[in-house]
Each structure stands twice: as C-alpha cells, then as structure tokens.
C-alpha cells in the first residue's frame, strides 16, 4: 500500500529517460495523424470560407462600373477611393467605435451573469444556462423588431419614463446609434455569456477560498483573484462581441433608421443598391483588416495575461 508499485516505478523511469529520437518519431507520427484527422475540416474550410474569401479579395481589385458591370482588372481604384474619402474614414471610425462601445457594455452586463452561472451550485443551473442563451433561439431580426417597439417614441421605455414624470418629450432611442447600441448589447449578450462561461476555466471556488483563508475580504478576493482569472474569458468575450458587432448589418439597418453608417451597411448598400461590387469587396477587405488588427491586439493582451 505504501511502497510504489513496480508498474509505477517503471512508468516514472520510462517517462524520464525516453530517448530523444524515439520521442521525435512518435511526435512525427502524431502530427501525421492529426493532419489526417484535420483534413476534412481543412477542405471544408477551404471550400466554404477561404475560396469565397479569395474570390472577394480578387474582386476588390477589379474595376467596378456604376451600372453593375465588373471589369476584370488589377486596380487599386476601390481602395484609393475608400481610403482617400474622409467619409469612409468616418464610416470606419463609426464601425470601430460601435464595436468598442457595444463590446464593453455587453461584457459589463454579461459578466455578473456569467460569473453567477459558473459559480452557482443550484440544481437549476442547467435551466438557468438555457435561459441565458435562449434568446439565440429567436433571430436577431425578431429581437431587433422587439427593441424597435420597446425603444420607440411611444415604446415601453419612453412611456414608462413619461408616466413617472422623468421626461417631458420622448427620448430619441431609435433611428440612431444609441438604439443600435442598446439593441446590439442585448442581442450579443448570449454570445458574451457563453464565451465567458467557457473562458472562466481557471476560476475555481478553491482559489477564492484559499484567498479568503489567507485573509482577503470579499472585495479583495474579487479584485485579486476572481477578476484577474476571469480576464481571459472577458477578453475573448469582448473580442467575440466586437467582431460580431462590426460585421452585423441587420440591427444597424433596422434600428439605425438610415442614420447609422457603418462598414456593414455601406457594403450592403454598395452590393444591393449601387451594384458596385468591387468597391463593396474593397470595403469588406478593410473590415477584415479591422478584424485582423483587433485580433492582433487581443493576442498581445492574452499573452500578457496568460504570461
């Protein structure tokens, strides 16, 4: 019972002194297996994502004519136009700003919920989790319409504020950026919560208990243990919401009342209204660059946190 068994000793010996060559051969074999297993996914990704993406990038260098004709070419016209016009810089800035604001607000309101879901020992935990993500079962369009009703000048918010005597004239909560941001925060909350719940892996009640036993009060436990350990989840969640926000087009269109100009709505207009697809493609590539920039920042930050 107390002495290590023969097998255990053998195992520790083998783990310690396995010759490097053998290890390398095994690693190579493993890599081949992984590659083989990944192949269907890679092919699928290639056909459904990379190929269309490549086509889009190629199209962004084509020459677009206002009548919808696309002339195969290699020209930077679309990029020059997008990047030399202050209007599009404004649109890019609007997009970025909207992503940051919605991302921050969404993470702020989702954080307590995610923390609760991770920590609760209630037997209804599964049910609560389902309730938190249930909004995903209805489409973003339906929920956006819901917000239009709630936020409208005769909507729930304005009429209750008015009946409480807090406002005289209805607040302008729809057909502007405010409405879009309110709607997006709610719409992306399930994503934020899900991402955080799965990103809170390093949190454990034992760590908080350990901090408590070492003399930390509730606030110190949160500030020194819970918050730092949940940061990777928070960052991933922010990234998720940011990316979803800057690429969403439905809610800005529906709740923005035509006054919210972001890259996604601009791309939509260029594609379906103006029929200048190369220009739309160039704007899409710019949007992708925005993604890339934020992902690079994200990776920097996670490396710093995960250290």
């Amino acid at each position: 019972m107390t002495a290590p068994t023969e097998t255990q000793q053998l195992m520790s010996v083998r783990a310690g002194v396995l010759p490097g060559a053998l290890e390398k051969a095994k690693a190579a074999r493993d890599r081949r297996t992984y590659l083989l297993l990944l192949l269907p996914a890679i092919l699928g990704l290639f056909a459904t994502f990379l190929l269309p993406l490549g086509y889009m990038v190629k199209m962004s260098f084509d020459r677009g004519a206002p009548d919808g004709v696309i002339e195969s070419a290699f020209t930077l016209d679309s990029y020059v136009r997008a990047l030399s016009d202050p209007y599009y810089w404004q649109v890019i800035w609007n997009t970025f700003q909207m992503g940051i604001i919605v991302g921050v607000l969404c993470v702020l309101v989702s954080y307590p919920i995610a923390l609760f879901l991770v920590r609760t020992r209630s037997r209804f935990r599964g049910l609560l989790m389902a309730v938190a993500v249930a909004p995903l079962l209805t489409s973003a369009i339906v929920r956006t319409y819901g917000w239009m009703v709630i936020l409208g000048s005769n909507g729930l918010v304005n009429s209750s504020l008015h009946s409480m005597g807090l406002i005289d004239a209805p607040l302008k909560l729809t057909n502007n950026m405010t409405g879009v941001e309110i709607g997006l925060v709610e719409i992306f909350m399930p994503y934020a919560i899900l991402t955080m719940v799965s990103g809170f892996g390093r949190l454990s009640s034992q760590l908080e208990e350990a901090a408590g036993s070492l003399g930390a009060n509730g606030f110190q436990v949160f500030a020194r243990i819970t918050l730092p350990l949940s940061l990777p989840g928070v960052l991933a969640s922010f990234l998720m919401v940011f990316v979803l926000t800057i690429s969403t087009f439905v809610t800005p269109t529906l709740l923005g009342g035509g006054t919210v100009q972001v890259l996604a709505t601009e791309i939509y207009d260029q594609t379906t209204g103006v029929l200048n697809w190369p220009f739309a493609a160039a704007l899409s590539v710019i949007l992708l660059a925005l993604f890339g920039a934020i992902i690079a920042v994200y990776q920097r930050l996670t490396r710093k946190i995960g250290g």
């Binding site: 319409y145 729809t174 057909n175």
Partner: peptide, 8 residues
C-alpha cells in the same frame, strides 16, 4: 424625418 430606412 423619423427614419430614412422604414422597417419593416
């Protein structure tokens, strides 16, 4: 103008 993009 209330909205430049009436919905639905």
């Amino acid at each position: 103008i209330q909205t430049f993009s009436p919905q639905p």
